[in-house]
Amino acid sequence: MKNARQPREPGGHWYDDEAGPVVRPYAMTGGRTRPGTAVAALDLIAQVLAEPGAADDPTLEPEHTALLALCRDEPLSVAELAADADLPVGVVRVLLGDLMALGSVRVRTPVPPAQLPDERILREVINGLRAL
């Protein structure tokens, strides 16, 4: 029985029989571990939507194109993109930072809880509307 850790052929050390082709995350990001722009905007629940025609750029890497394809039709969170692309969240953040710098994606950040209206105020508005 062949061991999964042994190369299939000479020079085939980038292939694992059980896992398939092996590409380390730092190879996808050019060794970068943080997005170049808008780190705060790339929260796990931030919604990402591809701009129309963004995937047509021939200079994009396959991983960039895959992310654009995933969020082309509907916004997805950063966490969903990472899960759907089967990539680590850190890699997805770096790749999305690249796409943000190119203007290929729109990112909507969630409203921080401190900026949400107080529940008491909302109840008073509802009661006021009911009184009309």
Rank of each mutant, 00 (worst) to 15 (best):
V78D: 10
A54G: 04
L87P: 01
L81E: 09
A46D: 02
G90P: 10
H64T: 04
V78Q: 04
E63Y: 09
T109D: 00
Q115F: 14
D57N: 14
L68S: 03
L60V: 06
E61R: 10
E61A: 13
A41M: 11
E61F: 04
G90H: 09
P52H: 07
A55P: 00
L95S: 11
A69S: 13
T109Q: 12
D43M: 00
L44Y: 00
P62V: 03
L60W: 02
A38F: 02
A101M: 09
P58H: 08
V91H: 03
G90D: 14
V111R: 13
P35Y: 03
D98R: 10
L95M: 10
E61S: 06
P113Q: 07
P112V: 15
L49C: 03
V78F: 07
V48A: 05
G97S: 09
A85V: 07
D57R: 13
V39A: 15
L76V: 00
A46P: 01
S77G: 13
A66D: 01
L60F: 11
T59E: 09
D57M: 08
V39P: 11
P112C: 10
L67M: 04
A79F: 12
E51A: 12
A46H: 01
P52T: 07
T65L: 10
D98S: 12
G36H: 09
A85K: 05
S77E: 13
Q115K: 10
L67I: 11
